[in-house]
Every structure is written in structure tokens, then in C-alpha cells.
Design a protein around this nucleic acid. Sequence first.
DNA 1: AAGACGAAAGTGGTTGA
DNA 2: TCAACAACTTTCGTCTT
Length: 272
Amino acid sequence: MLTDRIIDEGPEWRAFDQEQREKRARVGAPLTYTIHDKGLSTMIDWRNRDSYGKDLAPKRRAQIYRLRKWQRRIRVSDATERNLAYALSELDRMASSLGLPRTVREIAAMLYRRAVEQRLIRGRSIEGVAAAALYASCRQSRIPRTLDEVAEVSRVGKKEIGRSYRFIARELQLSIPPTSPIDYVPRFVSELKLVGKVQAHAVKILKMAATKGLTSGRGPTGVAAAAIYVASVLENSRRTQREVAAVARVTEVTVRNRYKELVEKLELEVPL
DNA sequence: AAGACGAAAGTGGTTGA
DNA sequence: TCAACAACTTTCGTCTT
């Protein structure tokens, strides 16, 4: 599938070798956001005195009040800006290490902004919501990544991402249908270096399987893996169960169980 | 020697009382 | 909040190529 070959241009910097890439990939905003300015900014004193300790004239006093007000405002808008910038850079970092196209990242960024606008971040971490937005965006774009895969490149765990995902999906009224195994096929096929013919066959098998209810309730990655395995046998470019299981990140046992169901229920002619 | 098969026990997450 | 439940994993022994 074409979309699978569009590779992300990545960050604006270029890495000339692997070592450099690893170093640079870790550049990002600092991790502590509790005190955004680390106490370095000037604060206007609350006492209405000048530097000699004298009382301030009423006019001057009013002026100082206004200054204080603005300082407060700038401070919070600064913090939100900074948080947004951090979230977006996280999004970018995760998306490029997952090899996702630009559009997916943009949708994720949009979702994140909407989450901020609706104050959905309260009580949740920036990292968690950013990862959740990316996960949601992948699914909406039908270029799914599993929760495990997202968690692997994220700074937070799978559980938190899942929780945040469900929350924002509900609050932002995203209607995301369950992931179809078919959506995983192009990626797995290309990782296994199989040809288009096998891919088409696998998709055909999955469509048949769907009509017989063999896909519901089952993990989409496992079903996709089994279909690809069968297709690879049928098309004479066999991959081992182990290889297929590895790219789908499931066990051989799962591939076997799904594969058995497929062969049985679809009455496929597999050579012994 | 490598791959495929399947039984059995264990794990983590969802669901329904 | 708890337990039941299904999907999936882990582990391991056996059969097949």
C-alpha cells in the first residue's frame, strides 16, 4: 500500500550517522514543569512601598496593580505555551520513531490542541495525553499502531495511555471503530518482504473471515498474522510461524490457533 | 536441526452482579 | 468491589520435514 511507503521526513535536523541520531533524538524540553521558570523571573513585591520604604502615591499604586496583573497573565500563558510546545515535540519524537507519515502527526496535534481547549489535561500527564492523541490519530488514519508499540516510544506506560485514550475519545466524541486486521496487513507484509500477491490474498482471506465472525473478539494483530501466514503458504512464498509471529508481536501459539480456525471454517485447501 | 503442533497452566484486562 | 471469563502468553514435550 502506498501510504506505507511514505516515510516521514523527521525533525528538521539531519542525522549523519546512527550515533548522532540517538543523541539528538533525546533533545527536548526539560522534564520538570512544576516551576516553569525555576524561580528565576522577577516578581513584583506585594508591598506598596518604593525602594526607600515610602508609601506609594495612589496613581503609582494603581499602575503597579496593573503591572502585577499582567505579570500573572503572561506567566500562565507562558506556561501553557511551553506545555504545548513540549507536547508537540513529544508527538513529533514519538511519531518519527514509529515511522508515521506527517498527516498522522498533524491529526494528533489537532486532537491534542482540542484536548487542551476542553481542559481535558487536568489530572493527566502531558506525555500520556500526547501518546493517546497519537494512538487515536493512527487508528483514525487506518495506519494503526498497537498500544504496546506506542507505549514503547512513549515516556509513559500502556495503561495510562489506554486510560487517556478512552477518556479523550469520549470527551472529544471521536468515533473510532475497532481496528480491522486488514489495516495491519500492509505493514506486516512489507516487514516480511512478501509480494503484493500475498498481501491481496491475505486481505481476501480476512474479508471472508469477517463474514463468518472469525475476527470479532480476537486480537486484530493475531488474526492478521494468521491470514498472512496462510496466504504465504498458498502463494508459495512461505514464512515460518515464528517469523510472522515476530512481526505481529504475538506468539506462535496465537498464530497457530487463529490459523487453525481460518483453515477449518473457511475450508481452505492447504497442502500437507 | 528446524519447524509445526497442541496441552496445560499463568497473566492482565473487561464485564456484569 | 469482586469474581467470572475469554483471549493471549509461557512453557514444554512430541511429531514432522
